[in-house]
Design a binder for these strands. Sequence first.
DNA 1: AAGGGCCTCAACCGCTATAGA
DNA 2: CTCTATAGCGGTTGAGGCCCT
Length: 307
Amino acid sequence: MVRTPCCKEEGIKKGAWTPEEDQKLIAYIQRHGEGGWRTLPEKAGLKRCGKSCRLRWANYLRPDIKRGEFTPEEDDTIIKLHALKGNKWAAIATHLAGRTDNEIKNYWNTNLKKRLKQKGLDPTTHQPIDSTDQTGFGQEKPKLTSSSSARLLNRVASKYAVDLNRDLLTGIIIGNSTIIAEDSQNSGHVYSPTENSTNTAPNSRSLSSVLMNNTSTFSGLSDKCSFSELFSNEEISDMYMNVDNVGLMEELKGMLSYDNVSAGDIKDSPDVNVADEMEILDSWNVEDDLDLEKFVSSLDSKIGVFV
DNA sequence: AAGGGCCTCAACCGCTATAGA
DNA sequence: CTCTATAGCGGTTGAGGCCCT
């Protein structure tokens, strides 16, 4: 990939923008519209590189930018979306009208991060820092990289998760705690990919069984999440607003995080024998109606201990 | 008053993704 | 398919303001 030289030329100004420069940029964009950033500086009479102009416009001069203090509602939205998306500032910004990714990133680093720490929450994982936490989600999770089986289980789950319909997933996420509680004791249930996905109860029991029984093994904040393909941004945001257990939603997202992943995508992961995992996964016949737990046990004997 | 440390946030840097020739 | 230009993203930097001693 060839890097475009930027701001390397002689005579290119850097640093803070002056009001005069701002005016030139605004006037030019009002006349000609956005785009063509490479040639814009010269045409607009600015001694700046195009990238600098684009950033100045996108982060500061755009007329739809909302300035001023973040509201408590915006704080809440950022925190919840960060739990779901991680440091995907641009993605988070799409949920906050008038706020830029840069502004949200700065606000997170200078305010919200500290606030979470003060509440005893890890700003990265959003889980309690205190290891005595009794929720189960706050307990230190084994690193994803520590378990090949966990990774594969994620992929197995995701392989079937795509068969689940939207209503089912919504049901699992929003307030279906009764079923989940029952499922935690239903260890013998067969996680069957052939169950009718429109039959909500059996499938939700299967999926949430996996969640509850293996909660410590699921992780991941991958942007390859198929979650976003199943739900619109607005719907995801609504779920976060309504869901009681944010941790559960994260777990579910983690389950889906390997959807569409290929061996090539994860071959750099240090402790994963990807070839083994993919071979096992590919050889697994969906029609076998295989019990997931038995399947995982069989994996343990082949590629490591399942935690 | 001074100056040192801390905080904030605009701007920059380095990189990837994508489109189009 | 390859190459190149451009757009976009996330991490980092540093100037300037604020606060404390």
